[in-house]
Amino acid sequence: MDKTKMIHGSERGHGGIKMTPAAVKILETASHLFYWKGINAVGVETIASEAGVTKKTLYDRFGSKDQLIVAYLAHRDEQWKTHLHQSLANVPANEPLHKILRIFDALGSWLAMNHQRGCAFINALAELTDESHPGRMLIFEEKKWLKQLFADWLTQAGVEEAEAKSEKLLILHEGGTVAYSMNLSTDVVTTLKETAMSIIGETEK
């Protein structure tokens, strides 16, 4: 598969950015540096140097560091959702509670795949203190999306108080990410799934 399509699913990235080979390399490099070193700690000069391009090329492709941050978060969102959908692929459509539990399995495998620094979105939110920054809305929407997914499947399963319980499941999901990144649990996925079933008020079948 064309690597540009692996980045954003098409030749156009977030905001209509043309994902040329140089743009792909810049985004890959920025994504690694932003996640592991922090958004504010990494400047465009470092990103350009590490990607093997000029600052002019970086600005030509993405326009600004802020837009590169948005592209990074959008790319991260797409990666997570692809991983989640693949994890859910073999769960029957008529088993919504199993789908909910599989989300926590997917989280465990995601974190094990070189994502030990925790949630990229929460990390980014802590650094993007300007409330008008376009990346913040993307972060909020990502969390709302997951909460709604929980709510939809709880409703489908006929669970009472689906909305309130979806909020608790989201908080559990985020807390599990923190526990894993800090090595505070010997088996975080099992703990998450057991707690999720307690929240739901059902016993796993």
Score class of each variant (00 low, 15 high):
1 M>D: 08
2 D>N: 15
8 H>M: 11
9 G>K: 07
16 G>M: 05
21 P>V: 02
22 A>F: 01
23 A>E: 03
27 L>S: 05
29 T>A: 12
31 S>A: 12
31 S>T: 15
38 G>P: 00
41 A>W: 03
41 A>P: 01
43 G>H: 12
47 I>N: 05
50 E>H: 10
52 G>Q: 09
58 L>S: 00
59 Y>P: 01
61 R>W: 03
62 F>G: 03
63 G>V: 11
66 D>G: 06
68 L>G: 03
70 V>L: 15
78 E>M: 08
79 Q>C: 02
80 W>L: 01
84 L>D: 03
89 A>P: 01
91 V>Q: 12
91 V>S: 08
95 E>F: 04
96 P>T: 04
105 D>Q: 15
109 S>I: 13
110 W>H: 10
111 L>T: 00
112 A>S: 11
120 A>S: 10
122 I>M: 14
123 N>M: 12
125 L>M: 15
125 L>K: 06
126 A>F: 14
131 E>K: 07
134 P>T: 15
141 E>I: 00
141 E>L: 09
143 K>Q: 12
146 L>E: 11
148 Q>E: 11
157 A>M: 08
157 A>W: 05
161 E>G: 06
165 K>L: 11
165 K>P: 04
168 K>R: 13
169 L>K: 03
170 L>F: 14
172 L>M: 10
183 N>H: 13
183 N>T: 10
190 T>L: 10
193 K>T: 09
194 E>N: 10
195 T>Y: 14
197 M>P: 05
198 S>M: 11
199 I>P: 01
200 I>S: 02
